[in-house]
Simulated scan of single mutants.
Amino acid sequence: MVSVGSADRYLPDTVQQAVKILVMGAFGVGKTTLVGSVSEIEPLRTEEVMTEASVGVDELAGLEGKTTTTVAMDFGRVTLSSRLVMYLFGTPGQRRFWDLWEGLAEGALGVLVLIDTRRLEDSFDVLEQLEVRGLPFAVAINQFPDSELYSEEELRGALDLLPETPIVTCDARQRTSSVDALITLVQHVSGMGAARPAGAAS
């Protein structure tokens, strides 16, 4: 991996390929945190302070310290190698913003789905939407300090995931583990392409 500091705004001349990745998940699972932790440039954020208008609309149980929410997208960049750069688009988690997903998903290689096991049921609708849209994805379990630990088998069953869907754990605050989760997604999607028969429609 190329070591890139936050002050590096320009891509090296050796970069030959750019991929677009979505970071999705339910409200408050850590999408903005992950994009911010891995981005080598100052991330673009569209966060707004939550007001009384969100009372009864945004479920804050277990998120009592949350005071802002993404209303459009988060954007960041990660140079994975001398030849490959990744552009990250974090999506809003609330249902009322789901219409934004259509535009953000255009041209995306795949989706990293962040999940908070303390509120596992909040992720069911997100996963269903991805399956309906046919977007390839990997699941990253964001380990909060008070998260319970579950086996991969338990998580795969609870989330009704296909055997080939990758599940990894990460700490969205930590760059290394978050980048590893993104690499897992890229490898998964690349493997899907390699497994597709020659001449098959993309």
Rank of each mutant, 00 (worst) to 15 (best):
G56F: 06
G56T: 09
D58R: 13
D58S: 12
E59P: 06
A61E: 15
A61M: 07
G62C: 00
L63A: 06
L63E: 12
G65H: 14
T68F: 06
D74S: 10
R77P: 05
T79D: 11
L80F: 13
S81D: 13
S82C: 05
S82I: 07
L84P: 09
V85E: 08
L88M: 05
G93P: 06
G93M: 12
Q94M: 07
Q94N: 08
R95A: 09
R96P: 09
R96N: 12
D99Q: 06
W101Q: 10
L104I: 07
A105H: 00
E106S: 09
G107D: 02
G107K: 08
A108M: 08
L109P: 02
L109D: 00
G110C: 07
V111F: 00
L112Y: 13
V113R: 06
D116A: 12
R119H: 12
L120C: 04
F124T: 10
V126D: 09
Q129M: 13
Q129G: 14
L130M: 05
L130S: 10
V132N: 05
V132K: 14
R133T: 00
R133A: 13
R133F: 02
G134C: 02
G134S: 12
L135M: 15
P136D: 12
A138T: 01
V139W: 09
V139R: 07
N142D: 10
N142I: 06
Q143K: 13
Q143P: 03
P145Y: 11
E148D: 15
Y150I: 00
E153D: 14
E153G: 08
E153H: 05
E154W: 02
E154H: 11
E154N: 10
L155A: 05
R156L: 08
G157M: 00
G157Q: 01
A158I: 04
L159Q: 05
L159M: 14
D160Q: 15
L162A: 15
E164W: 03
T165D: 04
P166S: 03
P166M: 12
V168R: 10
V168C: 11
A172V: 14
S178W: 05
D180G: 00
I183W: 03
